[in-house]
Design a protein around this nucleic acid. Structure first.
Lengths: 340, 340
DNA sequence: CTGAAAGCGCTAACAT
DNA sequence: ATGTTAGCGCTTTCAG
């Protein structure tokens, strides 16, 4: 292959007939070089196709930044994560910072391996969607100087900024939306109860019922539903039981889809109301359209990146929980009124 | 903040009571260090929380790899791109290579800026979904030693591997699927005609018609449709015209959605057949389900990454076009037979 | 098996 | 305004 040696500052200096420090000044945009020399150096750089080596340059720099951050999300291919990821990348690019990324697959071991691979590369900071396990091992890294911001949920055992959506408020609003239309018996479908968001959404659901003078204890609540199939089964089961609900609040994306499938199968999609947490693609093309509480992953990503970058730049306010608002989007399924 | 100085090889050496070269040997897993010393060094490393600095280590290394590759896709948040991206990240991780990424927004300037930012960081290779513009500027970089693989489409003016899906074959199969059900008049909805994939799919469509003894020239073909709204309008227009088609082949994701919307609005979703290129989320929940020719972004990403990494490792077979097969998924809309 | 010396490509600190 | 020297943290090369 191309046997030609790597082009260094010195080569450029020789070609331009200046000292190599002058070249360094020019390529770093430092002031105080005569326009004539700047020009000569620039030409030599172009002719030789020279590019500053960021490793060598970072090595001696006082500010030992790599201008790189890392993002570890559950699944980079998931729409929520990929939107968030994109926002992080765009925000970082505006500040000339590059982004490395990985999926944790909701597996603490994968997550830790990914984070450690990134720390080994000396990234300036990490944006992490933490798995449900304990993260105190992480605390040590933070003390080592790497900045951390968690997204979607806070990490237990870590004193760091967290950017989350308004899970509780969104769930309350979704439930109130159903209550306002006359529903008195509303079912809740929830994710694994150990997950932070699942817990918050359940709390929001209960709050809304209590506010309406209903007993949250008597509502049909199904937790630990891991996928759309189990949500589908749960809905079919609940509706077959005594005193079936007239409305359903699905606490997560896949559960909403499962609930929809169940209602379709039972032919009840126009009888039983449904509101889901987290938006669903093409929800508006379904019939009826699916009413959801939408998160704003774009904004969450942008906020997390902005926070992280400002910490990297030295901001040192105490870590806080940052809540991004949700938005209720009525599309039909949530506006169905109770029958009978 | 933590004022403590960075921990170096020397610090570890002092602590373990050995020369710093011995530490280097241990942390690099080189053979030929007595087990006792290995142990002492390991302990010192743990106690001090030492981590090899990849910049310093790469600086002197003969193999000047950064063990980093870059991915530039149109939109990291788009389902196709994010699936592909995920596969790249996973494949690279298995080989201990990290991935930087960026979106080009189908804008040649953004694309070039992203690629150059990555080259400035001395990535070992780049996976690029090229915009429709000319890429001969890229050729120079390749000659500079950075490996390149394009995905989704080949880049004009660049002699590099390309991993694409079987656009032509998929389109032919989709069209034949409709022909086999008795359709004789089939409309084609296409993206901007300058885009490689759009051209290939149109060719595949025409091939199928010709194979069936029909005149491709007389089929209703609408090109340069940029979004679902324009596809919707096009379908409404075509169906209102004389000799309306009984089947539609939509050459892209968004166009399929637009076509679906149009059929819904006209109440023809059970009269007019529809097959789309590229899968649509929740397609199976729609009524009728949408028949599509699905691409395999996961496989494309994995293949592109594998190719790139093997080139980085020195493989030097001539660049080629790698085609990933598509899969036709019948879900209802494509199985409708012509009426009358 | 272990270590000392040289130097990767660059920036910092100090000349001039 | 330009150049000189030292040295970032590590690997290489060569010596013991």
């Amino acid at each position: 292959m191309s046997g030609r040696r790597r082009v260094t500052l010195r080569d450029v200096a020789d070609r331009a007939g200046v000292s190599f420090k002058t070249v360094s000044r020019v390529v770093n945009g430092e002031a105080g070089v005569s326009p004539e020399l700047v020009l000569r150096v620039r030409m030599a750089v172009d002719e030789l196709g020279y590019r500053l080596d960021p490793r060598a340059s970072g090595l001696r720099r006082l500010d030992r930044r790599t201008r790189t951050i890392a993002v570890v999300l559950e699944d980079l291919a998931n729409p929520f994560s990929s939107e968030l990821h994109r926002a992080v990348v765009d925000t970082a690019r505006d500040r000339d910072v590059l982004v490395l990324s990985a999926s944790s697959n909701e597996d603490p071991a994968d997550e830790r391996a990914a984070v450690q691979a990134f720390l080994a590369r000396h990234v300036d900071g990490v944006i992490l969607m933490p798995t449900s396990a304990d993260h105190s091992w992480f605390q040590r890294e933070i003390e080592g100087g790497t900045q951390v911001v968690t997204v979607d949920r806070p990490a237990r055992g870590v004193h760091a900024d967290a950017v989350v959506c308004d899970n509780r408020g969104g769930a309350t609003r979704a439930t109130a939306h159903l209550l306002r239309r006359g529903h008195r018996r509303i079912a809740f479908l929830g994710d694994q109860h150990t997950i932070y968001t699942a817990g918050e959404r359940l709390t929001g659901f209960r709050d809304a019922l209590a506010d309406a003078g209903l007993d949250p204890g008597s509502a049909p609540i199904r937790l630990d539903l891991r996928d759309s199939a189990s949500a589908e089964a749960a809905v079919i089961d609940i509706l077959a039981g005594p005193d079936p609900p007239t409305g359903i609040f699905a606490g997560q994306n896949l559960l909403t889809i499962g609930a929809m499938r169940a209602l379709r199968r039972l032919g009840l999609e126009r009888q039983v109301a449904l509101v889901g947490f987290d938006d669903v693609v093409l929800a508006d093309l379904l019939d009826p359209g699916v009413t959801v509480v939408a998160q704003d992953p774009r904004r969450m990503g942008a906020e997390a990146a902005t926070l992280l970058l400002s910490r990297i730049d030295g901001a040192d306010s105490p870590p806080a929980l940052h809540t991004v608002p949700t938005r209720l989007i009525p599309r039909g399924s949530g506006e169905i009124r109770p029958h009978g």
